[in-house]
Amino acid sequence: SLLPIDRGPFVLNAMRAAQFETTRELNKIGKPVDPTDWGMTPPTVNAYYNPNMNEIVFPAGILQPPFFYANADDAVNYGGIGAVIGHEMTHGFDDQGRQFDAAGNLRDWWSPQSAAEFKKRSGAIVQQYSEYEPLPGLHVNGELTQGENIADLGGIKLAYAALQKALDKNPGARAQKIDGLTPEQRFFLSFAAIWKSKQRDEDLKLRLNTDPHSPARYRVDGPLSNLPEFQKAFGIPDGSPMARAADKRVNIW
């Protein structure tokens, strides 16, 4: 192998790995772009949208619980990996992705009317998230997290629509309850489960200032409180924190 790894000091292995990766990247200069080159390693538990290639990538690492269960029913998987797939698709049409055309070129291809309407709607999601206060005196930065919040909302809506199409093809599954839960309830619970986390306040403070993703709690509360489908699934009364008023609900796509 061109990258020697041995049982010597860890720091030396890390330095050789960094040097190897730097050399690999520098060797790309002057050569055609390799469309098969991934920006993540196969075992990485993550996914991404690349606007320059207009592609979405899902490493093998994310195709496991809680995102994907090989033996689970459709509702659980649509709420998990389905929402992630929808999230990455929506990145192509968020505040940054929309600036790239189908060929991956940075180009203004929207009509002025469409751009104005998008900015109006995205402004509403900025306002919604800026009102969240994870720690006393510290709010979510709605501008910084705008793109990810748009993708979270679009992703759950796409996944829910896909689930409904799947249930239309299998009416028996629509009436089936598992553990006393309807398919819609299992879908939303699965979505919430993928964002379970434990975080120190110190780390939360740092990420509120630097991370383009909202804190995990608001990646659940934010999108779901905008969906009348979520309110209906659990019979949530009007005026509840998880059921935003109709005139306050954000709808981008």
Rank of each mutant, 00 (worst) to 15 (best):
E143P: 00
A83E: 02
A159M: 02
L153R: 12
N170W: 06
R207D: 15
N54T: 13
G30T: 04
E88Y: 11
G39H: 07
N46R: 04
Q128E: 14
L12C: 00
D152C: 10
T41W: 04
R217G: 03
A72C: 01
P4C: 02
L106N: 11
L12D: 08
M15L: 12
A192D: 02
I252P: 03
A192G: 07
A151R: 10
A216V: 02
R24V: 08
A47D: 03
Q176T: 11
G39K: 09
K232Q: 11
Q199E: 14
A162I: 06
S122G: 07
N141G: 04
R244M: 10
G154T: 08
A70V: 15
F234K: 05
A243H: 07
T145W: 04
D221R: 13
L227E: 06
R7T: 12
A115K: 13
G239Y: 05
P171L: 01
Y69S: 01
G82Y: 03
E184V: 00
Q99H: 12
D247F: 05
K177M: 14
F10E: 07
G79S: 09
S225A: 14
R121D: 12
P112F: 00
M242R: 11
E202T: 11
K157D: 06
K119A: 13
E55S: 14
E143K: 08
D37Q: 14
P183S: 05
P241H: 12
S1H: 11
P228E: 09
P237S: 02
F20D: 02
P171K: 05
R249K: 15
W109I: 10
P171I: 03
P65D: 05
K169T: 11
G39Q: 10
A60M: 03
E131Q: 15
I150L: 13
S1A: 12
N149Q: 14
G235P: 05
E184R: 01
K165T: 05
K169S: 14
W110P: 00
K120D: 10
K31G: 01
A166W: 08
N141Y: 04
D168W: 06
V250N: 06
Q146V: 09
A162D: 13
F68E: 00
A162Y: 09
L26D: 03
I85P: 03
F100M: 06
P51L: 10
Y129L: 12
A83D: 00
G155P: 01
F191V: 05
A14F: 08
P65R: 03
F20L: 01
P42K: 07
P35Y: 07
I156E: 02
V250Q: 03
R217I: 06
R107K: 15
R24F: 08
K119T: 07
Q185T: 12
L167D: 09
N141S: 13
Q164H: 01
A245M: 03
D94V: 09
G86S: 02
W109Y: 08
W110R: 15
L181M: 14
F191H: 13
L63T: 01
I85Y: 07
M242N: 11
P42V: 04
A116W: 04
D201W: 03
Y160H: 13
G142K: 10
Q99M: 14
